[in-house]
Design a protein around this nucleic acid. Structure first.
Length: 295
DNA sequence: AAGGGCCTCAACCGCTATAGA
DNA sequence: CTCTATAGCGGTTGAGGCCCT
């Protein structure tokens, strides 16, 4: 299909926007809202094409855009998500509030890509650039790399929720039959213990959010850890690549951050030894005390 | 001080996806 | 179903600023 380019008309200005043009665009959008980009320039008194106006607004003028340097946390998020999604800048941007896909793309190309290279990592594959082709993420032993992650996650859940909270909930998380967990099992994909657990937890979180009869976690729960405190970068990377989809991970993050911004920071509970294999998921013993069960 | 090279990032281009007539 | 308009995406470009010689 041949289409007339939108920006080839006579008298259409290109290049950098002036403050006056910005003001006209802002004023118009504040008055009329977004949309109707094709006719907007004429109505707003701008000699620009609609596409240019939309881009200027989306990438620069929108009031919710966060300017300034990227934080180390944002850097980590971008790198992790890039490892998972590749150059899907718009998808990555949805996880960084106030950052645009264009900004992330530029930041990646000018900073993060170089940083990975300096660390000896291929910015495309995120694997080490060396002759062996090793990724650096392979387990150092015969144990799967995800084992410690799943074990620690379960310990945290058990130790933080089990006593004061809903025993049924935790049991449900671990032994529940959710569509998500079943999909994972039916997909034929390699199903790591961590991803199995995460899928079950994520499925349960959906249940919490959508079923009014389900009491879920209590409001005084102070479980405010996030992934970065919870797991190593390697573990997070592994989770993102083995769990079913990004949405599930976001759901799980919702569980982990449950309790609200004002809740206290949890302290590390004494580490409970958890079997690295996740056989115990299937052999969950409801008569056992929650904390310290996983040995 | 001059100018050449490099870097950054806003903006553009070409394309696909989607909605609606 | 087809066609068209619009929105959105990712790659690329180029202006301008900075740094080094």
């Amino acid at each position: 299909m041949v289409r007339t380019p939108c920006c080839k008309e006579e008298g259409i200005k290109k290049g950098a926007w002036t403050p006056e043009e910005d003001q006209k665009l802002i004023a118009y959008l504040q008055l009329h809202g977004e949309g109707g980009w094709r006719t907007l320039p004429e109505k707003a008194g701008l000699k620009r094409c609609g596409k240019s106006c939309r881009l200027r607004w989306a990438n620069y003028l929108r009031p919710d855009i966060k300017r300034g340097e990227f934080s180390p946390e944002e850097d980590d998020t971008i790198i992790k998500l890039h490892a998972l999604k590749g150059n899907k800048w718009a998808a990555i941007a949805t996880s960084l509030a106030g950052r645009t896909d264009n900004e992330i793309k530029n930041y990646w190309n000018t900073n993060l890509k170089k940083r990975l290279k300096q660390k000896g990592l291929d910015p495309i594959t995120h694997k080490p650039i060396n002759s062996t082709g090793k990724t650096g993420l392979e387990p150092k032993t015969n144990k799967p790399v995800y084992s410690s992650g799943s074990a620690r996650l379960l310990n945290r859940v058990a130790s933080k929720y089990a006593v004061e909270l809903n025993r049924d909930l935790l049991t449900g998380i671990i032994s529940g039959n959710s569509a998500v967990a079943e999909d994972s099992q039916n997909s034929g994909d390699v199903d790591s213990p961590t991803s199995t657990l995460l899928n079950k937890m994520a499925a349960t979180s959906v249940l919490i959010n959508t079923t009014s009869t389900f009491s879920g976690f209590s409001d005084n729960c102070s479980f405010t850890d996030d992934f970065n405190e919870f797991f190593s970068n390697e573990e997070i990377s592994d989770m993102y690549t083995t769990v079913d989809n990004f949405g599930i991970m976001e759901e799980l993050k919702g569980i982990l951050s449950y309790g609200g911004a004002g809740a206290g920071v949890i302290e590390d509970s004494p580490e409970v030894n958890v079997a690295d294999a996740m056989d115990f998921i299937g052999s969950w013993n409801e008569d056992d005390n929650m904390v310290g069960v996983f040995v």
